[in-house]
Design a protein around this nucleic acid. Sequence first.
DNA 1: AAATAGTATTGTGTAACGGAAGGTAGTGTG
DNA 2: CACACTACCTTCCGTTACACAATACTATTT
Lengths: 126, 126
Amino acid sequence: MNAQFKRGIIELCVLSLLIEEDMYGYLIINKLSQHINVNENTIYPILRRLTKEGYFETYLKESREGPSRKYYKMTDKGFKHYLRLRDEWDSFIGGVYHIINQGGKKHEEILERFARRTEETESDGS
Amino acid sequence: MNAQFKRGIIELCVLSLLIEEDMYGYLIINKLSQHINVNENTIYPILRRLTKEGYFETYLKESREGPSRKYYKMTDKGFKHYLRLRDEWDSFIGGVYHIINQGGKKHEEILERFARRTEETESDGS
DNA sequence: AAATAGTATTGTGTAACGGAAGGTAGTGTG
DNA sequence: CACACTACCTTCCGTTACACAATACTATTT
C-alpha cells in the first residue's frame, strides 16, 4: 500500500470519527483499521498534535478491560477545522476524479486507449 | 490547500494523463492545473523520477511557440505501474469514503450529530 | 534591446507516515 | 506467585514527496 496516499487524509478520518462521539486512541485505531490500513504510530501522534492545536480536549476514564483510557473530545474549534478540511478534501478529490477518469470516461475505455496506442506504435515501425 | 493530500496522488494523475497520449512537462502542468492546484517544481521531479524508474521514455520535439519540448511516453512497465497504483487508490479511497461518510450517511446528518452532542453537553451542566 | 511567455532544472526546508522499540496497567492461567 | 497476554500509550528516527526559491535557456513580441 502506498503510504503517501494517507498523508493528511488520516487526519480527516480521525476528525470524522470524533464528530460522532468521544473515543480513545486504541478504539480509533481499531475503527479505522476496519477500512484502511493504519498504524498506531501514526494515529497517536496525530491525536496529540490535534489536541495541542486545540481541536480536541482529553479526559481519562477507567475501563474494566485494561488500563485507563484517554478519551478525545472534539471542540468547536476542532469542528470548524473539520469543516474546512472536509471542504478542501471534497474539492481536491473532485479535481482528481476528473483527471483520473478523464472527465467521466469509464476506466475500461481508458485502458483500451493505451492498448490501441501501443498497437499503433508497433505497426508504424519506428 | 492541504499540501499533504497531494502526496502520491499527483503521481497517479500524471500517469493517468500519459495513458492517453505523449505529453511534455509544461502541458502536463497546465492540464493538471485546470483541476487541481499544482506546482511545476512538483511535477518535473515526478517526471524525472518515473522516467528513471522506467515508467516513461522521453524524446525531444521542436515547437513553434518556444524551446524544444521534452515529451514523456508511457512504457508498458509504466502502464502496469499505473494499474497497480490505481487499484491501491481505488481501494484506499473506498475505505476513506466509508469512514468519512460513516457508512453512507449524508454529510448533513453527520454535521447535525455534532450540533446535537454539543447541546446535550451544555444542558447537562458538567 | 527589452520584455514576456514557454520550457526545464536543481537545491533546500518541512511535514507526516511507518518501523522499531519501549513502557504501564490490568486480566487470566497454571 | 510467576508468567503471559491483551489493552493502551509514547518517543525516536528514517524516508518520501510537496513547495518555495532561484536559475537558465529559447522564442516571440514590442
